[in-house]
């Protein structure tokens, strides 16, 4: 007993004050890219060719955050002259098109599906389905339940049964072998329900795009309401997206 109390004192209170107070991530963290539109075309082309995810549209000078794994190659290649990554982790969007960005995103809180705020703003229960994710997205979603993020204080919980859920949070590129299980889980959730695509895999196939063993686009099999980009999304990216979409 004494040990428990001692440890309790040593551990202290570690819960973050976000979103009441801003939180800053270490400078090497790659969040929202800043894109220099006046960059030399040749350099942009070079970056587009080197991008492992083919996420850069050199003509439109845009990056598809739904494909990007935030590997940093384009920043290094251009020495920051074309792309440099900011530490802004607020990157969730309500539409797929918005993820194809010139460096700015619409404010998520102002999305059009207002009924979700009314329905789930005070209590949101989600069923997580890992559909061939590498377990990085899953792990960094799970982390939201640790004392630092403490998701439950916002009235958001991950639940075991789809019958208890208001929506589904999907990670992974949806392998052929998980497709049916995913659809069954989705069907078991009572309507109205919300669908969240988390991580580049569920949005675009991520690192596995082009494989014939995956679906590679969650939206093509169930309609997605909220997109959270990243490989994996930082826990704060997920937290920001959930709070702004539903609150």
């Amino acid at each position: 007993m004494l040990k428990i109390i001692k440890n309790r004192i040593e551990q202290g209170c570690k819960t973050s004050k976000y979103p009441k107070e801003p939180i800053s991530l270490y400078k090497r963290y790659r969040g929202m890219p800043e894109i220099n539109k006046n960059c030399d075309q040749a350099l942009i082309k070079q970056c587009a060719e080197a991008c492992p995810q083919d996420a850069i549209d050199a003509k439109a000078i845009k990056i598809d955050l739904g494909r990007c794994t935030f590997c940093g190659q384009c920043e290094m290649q251009s020495d920051g002259k074309f792309v440099s990554f900011s530490q802004n982790f607020e990157m969730g969007t309500a539409s797929r098109e918005d993820l194809i960005t010139d460096g700015s995103l619409p404010e998520l809180a102002r999305h059009a599906k207002k009924h979700f705020k009314k329905l789930f703003g005070r209590s949101l229960q989600l069923r997580q389905v890992s559909a061939a994710g590498c377990n990085a997205c899953e792990a960094d979603t799970n982390v939201l339940n640790t004392p630092f993020f403490d998701l439950s204080r916002f009235g958001i919980d991950f639940v075991a049964s789809p019958r208890h859920a208001d929506g589904i949070h999907v990670t992974g590129p949806v392998s052929r072998n998980m497709r049916t299980a995913l659809l069954t889980t989705y069907a078991a959730i009572p309507a109205p329900k919300v669908v969240i695509a988390s991580g580049s895999c569920s949005i675009s196939g991520g690192p596995f795009y082009g494989s014939d063993e995956i679906t590679g686009d969650l939206n093509s099999i169930i309609p997605v309401d909220l997109y959270i980009p990243g490989c994996p999304p930082h826990p704060l990216t997920t937290l920001h997206a959930l709070l702004n979409f539903f609150k």
Binding site: Q73, S175, E213, I214
Partner: peptide, 18 residues
């Protein structure tokens, strides 16, 4: 097998950058 993404089948076919 539910997580099978075809990794080994893909690796020889993709550009080196991937």
């Amino acid at each position: 097998g539910y997580q099978h993404r075809g990794v080994e089948k893909m690796l020889p076919t993709v550009p080196k950058k991937r």
